[in-house]
């Protein structure tokens, strides 16, 4: 867990950090991390470098550099199809933002009830909540499609967004329950003694403290929605509604001509918003809380 090796002395006369050279330790630590990162990310780095190679040289070898550097894959990829990727990106953003908002709202209120309130039927409902996660989603695809077709929601974003507003992602509810339960109960007990109602306790005390859980949920929802392929495939027919993964899939054709160059280029671009969102959300949420700390 740390890079320093410790003597097992129960008592230490000097603070430990003085026993090793802090600069050296930092250098070693960074070197180790960077080594691990290079090994882990080599495939991704390769993908980025391949996206700058001419279409028909993409699978030639494991090296990173090609003398024939080109931006064609990005240009052609972006403008492919009757529309272009700017439309797919916009659509993906719309679906993602609406899904995140719904998930945060629905999952947090549900989680608060399960984590902090006692009510009859709680055990049963909580078991039901967990139960909904245990069935492989593949078998509910067809009944769900039938349902959304009956509701005439095909060719709209409703099947992709609306369920999130009703807390169908039990995973996130469970996650938030675990987070909230690890918060000391004294906090809301004292707020209650001060006369706060449940809604105020939820919004003023629990939510600010559960920021890491909210950040995590937002992050995961972003990734899941952004990368979701099957949902958009089933529910969106018209190209002007397509999301990024559908656009990416259209570069592949098992029966004709595939465009791996454009595929890699657009895959790289589609990673950018998630990485960006991650950096922003962890700055705002993880770091923000750490500095405030718990009272």
């Amino acid at each position: 867990m740390t890079t320093t090796t410790l003597p097992k002395a129960p008592l230490q006369i000097y603070p430990r950090r003085k026993t090793t050279n802090p600069v050296l330790a930092a250098v070693i630590r960074h070197a180790l991390i960077i080594c691990a990162l290079v090994i882990m990310l080599y495939p991704v780095i390769w993908m980025v470098s391949a996206s700058f190679r001419p279409e028909n040289e993409i699978f030639n070898g494991l090296g990173l550099f090609s003398p024939n550097f080109t931006l064609d894959n990005y240009v052609n990829g972006w403008t492919s199809g009757s529309l272009n990727f700017s439309r797919y990106f916009l659509n993906s953003f719309l679906v993602t933002v609406l899904s995140i908002a719904g998930n945060l709202l629905a999952c947090s209120v549900t989680a608060y009830a399960f984590a902090r309130l006692s009510f009859p039927g709680k055990k049963f409902l909580f078991a039901l909540l967990l139960g909904t996660m245990l069935l492989p989603s593949q078998v509910t695809l067809v009944p769900q499609y039938i349902l959304f077709n009956k509701l005439e929601w095909i060719n709209t974003y409703l099947p992709l967004v609306v369920p999130h507003w009703f807390g169908v992602d039990a995973f996130f509810i469970f996650l938030m329950v675990q987070f909230i339960r690890s918060l000391p109960r004294e906090l809301d007990e004292s707020a209650r003694l001060d006369g706060c109602g449940h809604f105020r306790i939820f919004s003023r005390i629990i939510m600010p403290l559960a920021m890491p859980a909210i950040g995590t949920t937002a992050m995961f929802t972003f990734i899941n929605t952004w990368n979701d392929f099957l949902g958009p495939l089933l529910y969106l027919n018209r190209t002007d509604l397509w999301t990024v993964p559908l656009g990416l899939n259209s570069f592949l054709d098992a029966t004709g001509e595939s465009s791996y160059g454009a595929l890699f280029a657009m895959s790289v671009l589609s990673l950018a918003p998630i990485v960006g969102f991650f950096i922003v959300s962890q700055r705002l949420l993880l770091e923000g809380v750490a500095t405030t700390g718990l009272k």
Partner: peptide, 23 residues
């Protein structure tokens, strides 16, 4: 014309789901 397309394997997955819904 409402146009629908997907890569070969995905195409049949979608078709079968649509068929199940008489759609």
């Amino acid at each position: 014309v409402d146009r629908q397309s997907a890569d070969f394997a995905k195409y049949f997955d979608k078709l079968n789901v649509q068929a199940a819904s008489k759609n």
